[in-house]
Amino acid sequence: MEGNEPDPRFTLANERTFLTWLSTSLALCAGGVAIAALPENLFVPWVRTMLALVLVTLAAFAALAAYPRWRQIQRALRRAEPLPPPRLAPVFGYGVALVALLALVLIVVSA
């Protein structure tokens, strides 16, 4: 990679962020699998499947975006350029919020 070697603290912080994206992906995937494995009488089956699919899809996006994001940040650090904004942050924020709200509504309705 071209440019100057950045301060090791910044490189390690970038690596921790990369690993956090991967752990977030794993957590989203586990949540999707957990929702898919719920007993059939808890939620309407198609809604349960939809919630699981949204979470697993978000997990795939997080995992797929982790390495390119790491590379972008590392390149910017080496070139002393401004860091690029996290483009997928709104997708994850709104996606998880949507799943949480739908699950909340379904829990309240089924109680």
Rank of each mutant, 00 (worst) to 15 (best):
E2D: 14
P84K: 13
Q74L: 11
L38C: 08
V56Y: 02
T17P: 00
N41A: 12
T57H: 02
L106S: 13
L88A: 15
L19W: 07
F43P: 00
W46G: 03
P45L: 08
A89Y: 04
F10C: 03
A80Y: 04
A111I: 03
A62S: 14
W21C: 10
A60T: 06
M50S: 14
S23Q: 10
F43V: 02
T11I: 06
V33N: 01
E2C: 09
R69N: 13
L101P: 00
A34E: 01
P86T: 13
P8C: 02
L83Q: 13
F43S: 07
P45V: 08
E81W: 12
G32Y: 04
S23A: 12
L51R: 02
L104S: 15
L28H: 01
P45H: 05
P86W: 10
V33G: 01
E2H: 09
W46A: 11
E15Q: 09
E5N: 09
V109Y: 12
V108I: 15
L26N: 08
E81T: 03
N4D: 09
P90A: 14
G32W: 06
Y67L: 14
L28P: 00
S110H: 12
L77V: 02
A103Y: 05
D7W: 04
L102C: 03
G31M: 09
F43A: 08
F92R: 01
L53Y: 02
A65F: 04
W70L: 10
T17L: 15
A60R: 03
D7P: 00
A80C: 05
